[in-house]
């Protein structure tokens, strides 16, 4: 791989393709979500410090507030050879007192999940994938 390609990957995070598949993207009064992550180098063999998963729920109107956030490290010091693809299965466990998905007229509360490789420069990632948590808000969360 040429120097310019390496610089481009450093800036864009394009050294690997990170795919995130949500097995059950609608959580209905449940707090476990199963995901599969697939990582494939776009060119040369890659070395990453870690593969990590971020889960968050964001309240958004003209302001954005992260109401809850989790990070999971799925693998550390990993190498994926050119042409190979690696796959990880993981179950995200959310606590019961997290807020549900909520769509009002002027604000929203949305959940998202993203898988990333910790590499020099911009981390290759799956982008934020939306999922839904449908549940009743607990009384203690309202007061």
């Amino acid at each position: 791989m040429g120097l310019f390609k390496n610089v481009a990957n450093f800036v864009t995070g394009g050294a690997a393709e990170v795919q995130l598949e949500l097995i059950n993207p609608v959580l209905d009064n449940e707090y476990s979500m199963h995901v599969v992550i697939r990582v494939k180098p776009t060119g040369d063999t890659i070395h990453a410090k870690r593969l990590y998963l971020e889960v968050q729920v964001v309240e958004e109107s003209s302001t954005k507030n992260v109401l809850f956030r989790q990070e999971h490290i799925l693998s550390e010091d990993l190498q994926i050879n050119q042409g190979d693809e690696k796959e990880w299965s993981f179950t995200v466990e959310l606590p019961a007192e997290v807020p549900p998905t909520y769509l009002a007229k002027y604000f929203s509360v949305k959940w998202g999940i993203k898988a990333s490789l910790d590499m020099p420069g911009v981390d290759p990632n799956s982008g934020w994938q939306p999922f839904v948590l449908n549940k009743e808000v607990g009384v203690s969360e309202l007061m």
Partner: peptide, 12 residues
């Protein structure tokens, strides 16, 4: 009816 909600800046 929309359910009650209590966020940080936003509420129902």
């Amino acid at each position: 009816a929309l359910p009650s909600f209590k966020g940080k800046d936003c509420h129902m």
